[in-house]
Amino acid sequence: MSQLVLNAPFVAVAALTCVACYIIMTQKNLIKIVMGVVILQGAVNLFLVTLGYRIGGVAPIYTETSGTLMVLPVPQALTLTNIVIGVSTTALMLALIVLIYRHTGETDAEKSRRMKG
């Protein structure tokens, strides 16, 4: 039972990755593609944070703990950094979509293909 619970986050990571890949491969609406990328970011963040989980570990916010081990907060730091980076890339993507919409009146990937060949 506990094995199942511990592995549940990894199953969720796999499921989210599959959903995200499906979205970015099939959806033609630019905003939906951005949503797919955000879901992929969520999957990776969940993966990182799950790696940092230690059974019985204590958050490293005390100077001293009695007997128990403190968790090295590296994955949490990575996740926070990635969230910040994710927000900025998403903002830039949406800004570019707004510009594309102003130029063409479309948010369809099949319509914004001026450059090909």
Binding site: I33, L51, T89, M93, I97, H103, R114
Partner: peptide, 26 residues
């Protein structure tokens, strides 16, 4: 408009590529 489109495509593939790399780091 082609500049905006080029920038968008670049950001899209690089973000997904970078996330793949982050998965490897994990």
């Amino acid at each position: 408009v082609d500049a905006v489109e080029g920038g968008f495509k670049y950001l899209m593939v690089s973000t997904v590529g970078a996330l793949l790399f982050l998965l490897a780091i994990g």
